[in-house]
Design a protein around this nucleic acid. Structure first.
Lengths: 239, 239
DNA sequence: AATGGCAAAATCGTATACAAAAACTGTGCA
DNA sequence: TGCACAGTTTTTGTATACGATTTTGCCATT
C-alpha cells in the first residue's frame, strides 16, 4: 500500500523499467523515514527484496546516489546519505533562493483546478498528521513544495527543487527537534490564501519566510555518529 | 592531451574508478563540441574505445544521463542530449536566478590568489579563442562560471550550476548563431574588475546582465532534425 | 583480558553469456 | 515506384560467474 501521490517521485533520468520502480520505492521509504540516514543498502539485499539481480539493484542505487539520497563508497557499498551540517545550511539557503521565485510564478499561473489540488494535498497532510503517521505527513509536506514547482511549470527548476526537497527530508531526519509542526501547516495554508488571490508578491514573501522558518527550526549542531553503540549508551547509563 | 583544467569536471556521485574517468573524458568531448548533440553513444562502442566492458561503459553513460548531458531511451540506447527550446529558456532563466547570487558571494569571499586564478582562466580562454580552438574556448568559458561558484564556496549551488552550465554548452551547440564572442570576453573582464574591488553588488549586477545577454544571444527557433544525411544534402544541392 | 594477525565470509567490481527488443535489409506484392 | 512484411543483424536488458577488496571472527601471543 502506497499512500504517496505519484508526483512525489523525483526524476531519475532512467528509462522506464524495474530499476526505476525500485528507485521510487526506496525513495518513498527514505522520504517517509522508514529507512534512516546511514543505513546500509547492500546490492544483494536490495536485489532479493525486489526480486531482481544485483545488476538492476545497482542501477537503482546509482540513480538514487545521483539524486543525493544515497551515497556510494567504493568497495564498501551504498548507504542512505547523512547530510553534513554544512550541507544542511546550503540546502536551505538554496531553497530560500529558488522557492520564493517558484511561488511567485506559481501564483501567477495558478488555475482553480490546481488550487483545488493543492488544497486536497494540504488536507491529506493534515489527516496524516492527525493519525500520527508522521513519515507520510512529512513526505506529503515535501511534495507540496514540488507540486507548487510543477504548477509554476518550470521543469528545470522543478528538477532542482526535487533534489533539494529530498535532501531536506534527510536533514530533518537528522537535525529536527520536534518543534510544532503547526507552523508548517500554518505557512502552507497562508500560501494557499495567496494562491487563491493570485497574489504573486505575497506568495513569494510567504514562501521566503517559510523556508527561513524551516531552516531556523533545525538544530544544526554536531550530533554523535548514528551508531549509539558505544559512548552514547555509556553516557545514557550515566545520566 | 587534455587542455581542460580539472575543475571543469562535474560531480557524478560515482566512487573513483574507471567509470568516473570515462565520464570525465566523455564530458570534456561533449563540452568541447567534439561530440555533437544527438550523436549515439553505443555501449559497445564506448566500451571498446576505453577498453572496458559494457558494464562499465553503461555505468558511465547513466551517470552522464543524470547530469543531463546524455539521454537514455529504453531499448534504444544513449544519445548526447538535444535540449528543447523550452529547456534552453528554462536553463538560462535558472542561471539568471542563481548566478548573480553566486557572483555576489564570490565577490565577498574573493582572495588575491583566487582572483589571480580567474585572471589566468580568462587568459587561457582568450588564448584558445585567438588560435581558433573554439571548442576549448567554449568549455573554458563554461568552467569560468563554475570556478566562481567554487570560490563562493557553496557546494550545493555549485553542483546545481555545473549541471546548468553543461546543458548550456549543448544549447549553444544547437542554437548559437555566432554573434561576437567579444561580449563574452568583455563581461568576464568586467566581472574580474568587480571581484578585484570586492564589489559584491556590482558583481551581482554584471553577472545578471551577462546571463541575460547569453540568453538573448541565442537563436531559439525550431531547427531541422540534426541528421542532415539525406534530404538536407539534397536540398542543399538544389539551392 | 587486551592486542595483533591470520583465515573465512561477505560484499563489491567487472566481465561475460544469454534473452529480448529494436533496427536493418531484401523480397514480394500491389 | 511505393509499401508491407519477414528474416537477419545489431544493440540493449538482465542474470550470473569470478576475481578483488573489505569486513568479520577466531586464535595465538603478550
Amino acid at each position: 500500500m502506497n499512500t504517496i501521490p505519484a508526483d512525489l517521485h523525483g526524476t531519475y533520468s532512467l528509462p522506464p523499467g524495474r530499476a526505476l520502480d525500485i528507485c521510487y520505492q526506496l525513495e518513498a521509504a527514505i522520504l517517509q523515514h522508514r529507512i534512516r540516514p546511514g543505513m546500509k543498502l547492500a546490492e544483494d539485499e536490495v536485489g532479493e527484496t525486489f526480486g531482481v539481480s544485483r545488476t538492476v539493484a545497482r542501477t537503482a542505487l546509482q540513480a538514487l546516489a545521483h539524486g543525493g539520497l544515497v551515497t556510494i563508497e567504493r568497495n564498501r557499498g551504498a548507504f542512505v546519505s547523512r547530510p553534513t551540517i554544512r550541507e544542511a545550511h546550503e540546502v536551505f539557503e538554496a531553497r530560500a533562493l529558488i522557492e520564493p521565485r517558484i511561488a511567485r510564478m506559481a501564483a501567477a499561473a495558478m488555475t482553480a483546478e490546481q488550487l483545488d489540488g493543492l488544497h486536497r494535498h494540504v488536507d491529506a497532510e493534515h489527516e496524516a498528521t492527525r493519525r500520527g503517521d508522521m513519515g507520510v505527513a512529512l513526505s506529503l509536506s515535501g511534495s507540496f513544495h514540488t507540486a507548487i514547482a510543477e504548477i509554476a511549470d518550470q521543469r528545470v527548476l522543478t528538477q532542482i527543487l526535487r533534489s533539494l526537497v529530498s535532501r531536506s527530508s534527510l536533514i530533518i531526519a537528522l537535525y529536527w527537534h520536534r518543534r510544532d509542526t503547526a507552523c508548517e501547516s500554518h505557512s502552507h495554508h497562508a500560501l494557499l490564501g495567496a494562491f487563491s488571490r493570485n497574489d504573486a508578491a505575497q506568495a513569494e514573501e510567504i514562501m521566503k519566510s517559510h523556508i527561513v522558518d524551516l531552516h531556523s527550526g533545525l538544530d544544526l549542531v554536531d550530533r554523535p555518529e548514528e551508531a549509539p553503540s558505544l559512548a552514547d549508551v555509556f553516557a545514557a547509563a550515566k545520566a
